[in-house]
């Protein structure tokens, strides 16, 4: 019996989406459901999870207020510094670099991704540690400078680690920016600076928003860089989660914190999309 066209098309669609759907269900939806269930449970006497139905864990969230505060501060601030460094780079790559060298330069931005972030962050530990830059400073008479395990080191590590994720979307949005719009702006009497702020910047905002949202969301879960370059003194939600699951073994509380974090991420993403839509004037915004 022959299938009708619609039925066939539906079958093809299902087949195409099946692997991703199964993957997402098993590795995203199911764990999330488990996390939600854990979050209304209780901690066992020796740790772990004990079935219950209580919102005590959520009521206890203020116990990690400092971690939330640090994270909600770090994520946008880190993303902002990333942006400050990334925008000129992306602008140079997309607008100023000669097309002949562009591909090479863009791949140079991506190349660090081929190495583990862990290894690269370790490299920074050595560069910032006493045997690195402070040692060089010592040679010119500036003794006992401490760079490692400072907020500055964490910021540096974050900007370094997430820079490519910020550069790429901005680069893409600048690269597809219609050059005639810039000429039109100049034609209408706008000086280059004015053209940048009236045309280039607003039209690259979708890329900026994508980059900011991407980096912010990843930073909300950041754990490694503050741990390694901040000496464990800088405590983020990621660190709180690690400690709750790996030290005090308070799974329900950890789950409640993680569920809340997911909620925050969703809100951040929605706000970012709204802003990008409003600014670009269309709904054709590629936000991740």
């Amino acid at each position: 019996m022959a299938l009708t066209m619609t039925a066939k098309r539906r079958l093809v669609t299902t087949a195409l989406l099946a692997p991703a759907s199964v993957w997402l269900f098993v590795f995203l939806v199911l764990p999330f459901i488990a996390m939600v269930i854990f979050s209304v449970g209780e901690r066992g006497p020796a740790g772990g999870y004990q079935a219950a139905f209580t919102f005590a864990q959520y009521a206890n969230l203020p116990a990690r207020a400092a971690a939330y505060w640090n994270t909600l501060l770090l994520a946008p601030v880190g993303a902002f510094f990333c942006l400050v460094v990334a925008y000129p780079t992306a602008y140079y790559l997309a607008v100023k670099a000669s097309p002949r060298h562009r591909l090479l330069l863009v791949s140079l931005v991506v190349v660090p991704f081929w190495t583990s972030l862990l290894v690269r962050t370790y490299a920074w530990m050595y560069i910032l540690g006493s045997r690195g830059i402070p040692n060089l400073l010592d040679m010119i008479g500036i003794a006992d400078v401490r760079l490692l395990n400072t907020p500055g080191a964490v910021l540096l590590g974050i900007v370094y680690g997430y820079l490519p994720l910020m550069i790429m979307p901005i680069y893409v949005s600048l690269e597809k920016l219609d050059r005639r719009l810039l000429e039109a702006s100049a034609d209408l009497g706008a000086k280059p600076v004015s053209t940048f702020f009236s045309v280039t910047l607003p039209l690259s905002l979708p890329g900026v928003m994508t980059g900011v949202a991407l980096v912010t969301i990843l930073l909300l879960g950041e754990y490694l860089i503050p741990q390694l370059l901040g000496g464990g003194k800088v405590f983020f939600i990621g660190n709180a989660l690690v400690d709750l699951f790996l030290q005090s073994r308070n799974w329900p509380f950890g789950s409640a914190i993680a569920v809340t974090l997911v909620a925050i991420v969703v809100v951040v993403l929605m706000v970012a999309m709204r802003i990008a839509w409003r600014i670009s004037g269309t709904r054709q915004v590629d936000l991740i």
Binding site: A63, A66, A67, K233, F235, N239, A240, Q247, S248, N250
Partner: peptide, 12 residues
């Protein structure tokens, strides 16, 4: 749990 929470408060 009290010691675990103390540690978390100290770190954060």
């Amino acid at each position: 749990p009290a010691r675990a929470e103390l540690m978390a408060r100290f770190k954060s």
